[in-house]
Amino acid sequence: MDLLAQVVREAPVPLWVIDSHGLVALANREAIRFLGYRGDDDVVGGPSHDLLHCRRPDGTPYPEHECPIVGSAGSEPATEWFVTREGDTRPVRWSTRSISEGHATLLSFSPEPRAEARIVRELRRRGPGVRTSPAQARAELRESLCRTISTRFTDPQFTTAELAAAAHLSVRSVQALFAETGTSPAAEIRRVRLEHARELLVRGHAVQTACLASGFLDPGTFARAFRQRFGCAPSQVPASLSA
């Protein structure tokens, strides 16, 4: 049994076991990672529905009695929206199987790759009188991507591919979203990095410190990009502002 439990825990697919009372009996590492929790203590013993999706993508409550997962005796693959510990909404493809002679439910899920189209559909399902056009939905998705950039730009390994993976979208979809505003995800990442570097320089930090703290690894690349955007070398920032 210990070996089987270890296999489940280390499986590359998110697995989640719900007991007959609707509580989480087991969650493997991948499920915990996907939902942004720190470990077993955050989820095991807690109400499964609340931990997976206590609200809908538009922010309205999601009553447990409407949830197709808790109490399911087994289902074919379907789509849902799960909510991470940080409150981010993620589209998933899920299925369940009855285990332990019907006393528990094994839930497996994976990111839904067609996130963008589903975001549009879910946003259209808002309450009466609330209308969301495809353009508005795409704008909201773009804003979400920008928020991700603002929290991860200092990582020099953060790229367009990483941004797309975080949102469960293809690189092409992310590029198309930014193209609508006349830019690109790579350009936006660089813009945020340069703005941050400039702020550090204004506050008196050394050029090398500003370079590395903003996600640049190569000082030469940083200097060229900085000059192209601001019209001066990084070392000239304090003098140019005080002139």
Rank of each mutant, 00 (worst) to 15 (best):
R38G: 07
L163D: 07
I32R: 01
Q6V: 03
P12V: 05
A166C: 07
R147A: 12
E143N: 08
I69M: 04
F82D: 15
G220P: 10
P14T: 10
R172P: 09
L3P: 00
P47E: 11
T148F: 03
T60D: 02
R229I: 12
A225Q: 12
G87T: 05
T160I: 02
S100G: 07
R93V: 06
T79W: 04
S214H: 09
G220K: 06
E188K: 09
E143F: 05
H103N: 10
F34R: 00
S95L: 03
E188G: 08
A11G: 06
L107H: 03
S144W: 03
D42K: 01
T105S: 04
G182S: 15
A31Y: 01
R85S: 15
D40I: 00
V24E: 02
A135M: 07
T181C: 13
P128C: 11
V13H: 04
Y37E: 07
L200Q: 06
G36I: 03
L107N: 01
A210N: 09
A225Y: 08
F109N: 11
E195I: 12
Y62A: 08
G182Y: 11
G39M: 07
E10T: 11
A167E: 14
W94A: 01
A210E: 13
C67E: 15
L51A: 12
S110R: 05
L4A: 03
P128R: 10
R125E: 15
F230I: 10
F178A: 00
H103R: 12
R190I: 06
T79S: 05
E101F: 08
R193S: 14
L241H: 07
T151Y: 00
L23G: 00
V13E: 07
Q136R: 09
L141E: 10
P238Y: 06
L217R: 13
Q6Y: 00
E162A: 15
P14S: 12
T209N: 02
A186K: 11
L123S: 05
Q208E: 15
H65M: 01
S100V: 15
V8D: 01
A210S: 14
F82L: 15
I69F: 00
S100T: 11
Q6F: 03
T221Q: 14
P91Q: 10
H196Y: 12
C67M: 06
C211N: 07
A117S: 12
S98A: 12
D58K: 01
V17Y: 02
D40P: 00
S100E: 15
L212H: 08
E112H: 10
T105H: 04
S133V: 09
E162D: 11
S240T: 14
N28Q: 00
A187W: 07
E162Y: 01
L106A: 09
V8Y: 01
E188Q: 14
E86D: 13
L123V: 01
S72G: 02
A31S: 12
E76F: 04
E180Y: 08
D2V: 00
R85T: 06
V207D: 14
C211R: 08
L241E: 13
C146W: 02
V120C: 10
D19E: 08
V207C: 11
L177I: 13
T84K: 10
T181P: 09
R97V: 13
H53L: 07
P185I: 14
Q236R: 14
D58E: 13
E199I: 04
G45Y: 06
A5F: 04
R29H: 05
T159N: 08
R131D: 11
L26Y: 02
D88K: 10
A223E: 15
